[in-house]
């Protein structure tokens, strides 16, 4: 056994760390603009909501939700309950079985993994100052 073939400890450790990271860390490749809503959902026994901006903006301009329907332009700033939606407010303006499918399709919105925090999946952090 010659010294030439010995693997330095540092490289061994790095390789092992890469392996562990590769197999156990969950990479996130969410679509740009996906919003996670989990102020209430998981406490109430439902999966977090994933709101896809990309899907909606193909069909509606921003102004429909952010002007007509009154959604604040800040992820998590809209305190929405299922009761509001069933009453025809916010998402319920369209998700009423007329413009779009109705609220009995729980799993289409409540589709996130457990433990996700409310935020927007943007290109950088847009959660406000104090990020550095």
């Amino acid at each position: 056994m010659s010294e030439r073939h010995a693997i330095p400890k540092r490289i061994r450790a790095t390789a092992l760390a890469m392996l562990l990271l590769g197999f156990f860390a969950l990479p996130v490749f969410a679509e740009y603009g996906d919003v996670i809503l989990n102020h209430r959902a998981e406490q109430e026994g439902m999966r977090p909501v994933i709101y896809p901006h990309w899907f909606h903006r193909i069909r509606f301009r921003c102004k429909v939700c952010h002007n007509e329907l009154g959604f604040e332009m800040r992820a998590g700033a809209n305190d929405i309950t299922m009761a509001d939606i069933i009453d025809g407010k916010f998402c319920g303006m369209c998700h009423n079985g007329q413009v779009a499918w109705s609220v009995e399709n729980c799993d289409i919105c409540h589709s996130g993994r457990k433990g996700l925090k409310t935020r927007i999946m943007g290109g950088h952090e847009t959660g406000g100052p104090g990020r550095w």
Binding site: L26, P27, V28, F29, A30, E31, D34, I36, R47, I50, P52, W54, F55, I58, N105, D107, I108, S111, G112, R113, K114, L116, M121
Partner: peptide, 27 residues
């Protein structure tokens, strides 16, 4: 574009994934 079931955000066991559009199909 990553399919919803593999994006790390969606629960891959959710049966509703079958009826949901994947980003690549539209974008």
């Amino acid at each position: 574009w990553t399919p919803l079931a593999e994006d790390g955000l969606h629960d891959p066991d959710n049966p509703a994934l079958e009826v949901m559009q994947n980003p690549g199909d539209a974008l």
